[in-house]
């Protein structure tokens, strides 16, 4: 959509739990999921967030690093191309099927 502000998908990594908690309280980030320990030694904790480019730059500080994972706006536009158009179930006779395999067994007999 023309004019839509670009949103980045970022991973924010803080030196420890307290630093991340302070950041979340102060910055009101749009997060996906919750804080998680960063692999490897040390107390680093990270969280994924969705922020503007300007906000991403503003998050960087001594005990906080920001790593860009992707362009959430561009990914969102691409995914919108994967949404059905019209109504694939407009015919009442078309019944949706789930993804499980239906397998006959003997367990209901007798």
């Amino acid at each position: 959509m023309a004019g839509e502000e670009k949103i980045l998908h970022v991973r924010v990594t803080a030196a420890d739990t307290r630093a991340l908690r302070n950041l979340l309280r102060d910055e009101r980030l749009d997060v996906g999921g919750g804080p998680a320990p960063t692999p490897g030694p040390g107390d680093e904790r990270s969280i994924e967030a969705f922020v503007t480019e300007e906000k991403a730059l503003g998050l960087e500080r001594e005990d906080v690093a920001v790593h860009v994972l992707g362009d959430a706006t561009a990914i969102g536009r691409a995914r919108q191309e994967e949404v059905g158009t019209g109504d694939r179930f407009a015919d009442p006779g078309i019944v949706p099927h789930g993804l499980g395999q239906k397998v006959k067994d003997q367990s209901r007999e007798g």
């Binding site: 949706p96 099927h97 789930g98 993804l99 499980g100 395999q101 239906k102 397998v103 367990s107």
Partner: peptide, 29 residues
Amino acid sequence: LVFFAADLLEAYSTGSGLVYGGKTFTAAQ
């Protein structure tokens, strides 16, 4: 949730179990 409902209804009505990859539910279940 649509798939979940569709799976249960089709499996029950055909007397079938459900298999999702390595997880199997019998028709009796």
